[in-house]
Amino acid sequence: MKSLLVLVQTVDLKEKLENAPDDSYQIGLIIGSFVPFVALVAIAYWMYYAAKKRENNQ
């Protein structure tokens, strides 16, 4: 249950960007915030492609 809570917690990106020490830290924050979304989209696409391929082979 605690791991689910950690996934649901929101990160205040705006506050972190305002308190960032330099520009490279800001770029890292922005890229790091999009990586989980991109990974989930890639996994969803892979699952769709695999299901579609399996459906065509039957």
Rank of each mutant, 00 (worst) to 15 (best):
A42W: 01
E15R: 14
Q58I: 06
Y45P: 05
Q26H: 06
V6T: 07
M1F: 10
Q26N: 09
N19F: 02
V41L: 15
G32R: 03
K16C: 10
K53A: 01
I30V: 15
P36Y: 09
I31Y: 13
V6M: 10
V38K: 09
A51E: 07
A39P: 05
L7M: 11
V8M: 13
V35Q: 14
A44I: 04
E15A: 15
R54M: 07
I30C: 09
N56D: 00
L40N: 12
T10Y: 08
G28Y: 02
Y49R: 13
A42T: 08
R54H: 11
L13M: 04
D23W: 06
Q9V: 09
G32D: 01
A44P: 02
V6K: 10
I31Q: 14
G32P: 02
Q9P: 05
A20S: 10
V11L: 08
V35C: 05
K52A: 04
S33F: 02
A20I: 00
V6I: 08
I43N: 02
Q26K: 15
E18K: 02
V8H: 08
D22P: 03
K14D: 00
I30L: 14
S24M: 06
V35F: 04
R54C: 02
I43K: 03
A50M: 07
K52D: 01
S3I: 12
D23M: 07
L40S: 14
I43M: 12
K14C: 00
L5V: 04
N57T: 05
L40I: 14
K2A: 12
I30E: 11
Y48G: 07
N57M: 10
M1D: 12
Y49D: 12
F34R: 10
N56I: 00
K52F: 00
N57A: 13
D22C: 06
K52H: 04
P36I: 07
L7F: 05
R54L: 08
L29A: 03
E55V: 07
V35L: 15
A50Y: 03
I43H: 01
Q26E: 14
A44R: 01
E15C: 06
A44E: 02
A42V: 10
M47S: 12
L17Q: 01
L4N: 13
L4M: 08
L5N: 07
V41M: 13
T10F: 11
P36T: 09
K16H: 11
V35E: 04
V6S: 15
A42D: 00
D12S: 05
P36W: 09
K2C: 06
Q58T: 09
K52C: 01
Q58W: 13
I30H: 10
S33C: 01
L13S: 01
L40W: 10
L13I: 01
M1Y: 11
S24R: 12
Y48T: 07
Q9D: 10
L13C: 01
N19V: 05
N57G: 05
A50K: 15
S33I: 00
E55M: 14
L40A: 14
M47W: 10
T10V: 09
S24Y: 08
K16P: 02
K2S: 13
Q26Y: 05
T10N: 14
L29S: 03
D12R: 02
P21E: 13
P21I: 07
K14T: 00
D23T: 09
S3D: 12
